[in-house]
Structures are given as structure tokens and as C-alpha cells.
């Protein structure tokens, strides 16, 4: 059975190892607002922000051009940093970029590589905890959005999604519905039906 659990709620009557939990002699307790599956013992966060990891793809905004480096707003407690001499693209303050994280500095700053400017288009911000659902298993969800709307999507694991071309409004609607209903089952089918019903 799957159920919504909150911090401090007991998931199991013995101490067992699950991410985002703490244990004592009497059991295992959630540390987050999440969705818990009693059978598979998996605890999926319903909320929560993204913390940078090496290899993550992110969408951000160039905040400041400091000459040798650029700082990037990633909608997170930590900034991104691009070292100017490592890149070939010409980027400026206020540009929207996609990049990947090479490594993290001690203070949490994410060193970004391979930045690419995203021109025009539209950004939306979603809860980072919902990004896996928006992508879907083996990209199924994102593929049915692009197939039905003709919109190109660039998805940052930091919760920023960039959309361009096609029916951007319909693609946005689909993404926001996935964000809101991420914890429900049968979502892929419902989104497909919604997209097909609203397709011009």
C-alpha cells in the first residue's frame, strides 16, 4: 500500500535503512513529507528543493559577469559558477543557459561546464521533486508532451524548464498538471488524454 507520510511518522516497527528516514530502537521514521510504499519500502519526497550533484543538467540565469567567471542563479541555495576560459560560447548577464555540473566546491558552489545559451522561449519553474515524474520512465512523459505539442523542452534538474516552439501553452498546462498530480497513479494516461483532447 502507498501512503502519504510526514516527518516523525513511523514507517516500520524495526530500524531499517531507507533514504530520508531516521531510526531508533522502536522503528523507522520519515524525515520528509513523502509518499511511502510499504511493499518496496521506498520513500519518495513530495516536496523539497534540489541539491546540486556532479553530472546534473541544470537550467539557470547568468547573474553576473565577473570577467574571469560568471555566476549563475540556479534557483537553489547554492550558485553555479562558470569559468570563462573553459568555454567557447559567448554568454552575458541575464542569458538563460543550460549547463552540466562538473563538480562542487566546498561551499556548495556548482562548477558548470558546457554552457549553451537558450534564446527566446519561455521558462517555467516547478518543484524540483516533481522533475522525475515530468521526465517519466524512460522519457515517456516528456516524449508524449513534445509529440503532442511540437514544443521543445529543456529540463533542468533544478526545477527550471525551458520551452520553445509549438503549442507552448498546452505544454505548460501539461507540465503544471504533472507537477500538481505527481503523486497520483494513472497520470501518464491522463496527461495523454488531456494533450490529445486539447490538440489543435
Amino acid at each position: 500500500m502507498q501512503r502519504i507520510v510526514v516527518p516523525g511518522e513511523r514507517l516500520h516497527d524495526k530500524p531499517i535503512r531507507i533514504d530520508n528516514t531516521i531510526t531508533d530502537n522502536n522503528g523507522t521514521y520519515s524525515c520528509i513529507l513523502g509518499y511511502f510504499d510499504d511493499q518496496s519500502k521506498s520513500l519518495i519526497p513530495l516536496e523539497g528543493l534540489w541539491l546540486p550533484k556532479s553530472g546534473d543538467t541544470v537550467v539557470g540565469i547568468v547573474e553576473e559577469d565577473r570577467g574571469t567567471t560568471f555566476t549563475i542563479n540556479l534557483n537553489a541555495p547554492y550558485r553555479g559558477l562558470i569559468i570563462a576560459r573553459f568555454i567557447e560560447t559567448d554568454i552575458r548577464a541575464r542569458d538563460v543557459i543550460i549547463a552540466s555540473i562538473k563538480e562542487l566546491e566546498k561551499d556548495g558552489t556548482a562548477i558548470l561546464v558546457r554552457p549553451k545559451r537558450l534564446e527566446g522561449g519561455k521558462m517555467i519553474s516547478v518543484k524540483p521533486s516533481k522533475i522525475p515524474r515530468i521526465i517519466g520512465k524512460a522519457n515517456t512523459m516528456v516524449k508524449q508532451i513534445t509529440d503532442n505539442t511540437g514544443t521543445s523542452l529543456i529540463i533542468g534538474l533544478n526545477g527550471i524548464i525551458w520551452l520553445k516552439g509549438g503549442n507552448v501553452d498546452l505544454a505548460t498546462k501539461a507540465i503544471l498538471q504533472i507537477e500538481e498530480e505527481a503523486h497520483t497513479s494513472g497520470l501518464t494516461d491522463r496527461i495523454r488524454e488531456m494533450l490529445e483532447a486539447n490538440k489543435v
Binding site: 510526514v6 516527518p7 524525515c31 520528509i32 513529507l33 519526497p45 523539497g48 521533486s129
Partner: peptide, 11 residues
């Protein structure tokens, strides 16, 4: 705080 997803040991 719990609604924000910030991990906490209890409410």
C-alpha cells in the same frame, strides 16, 4: 517547515 520538504526529525 514540513510542507516545504525541508527534512526534519519530527514535527
Amino acid at each position: 517547515v514540513a510542507a516545504s520538504g525541508i527534512p526534519m526529525t519530527d514535527i
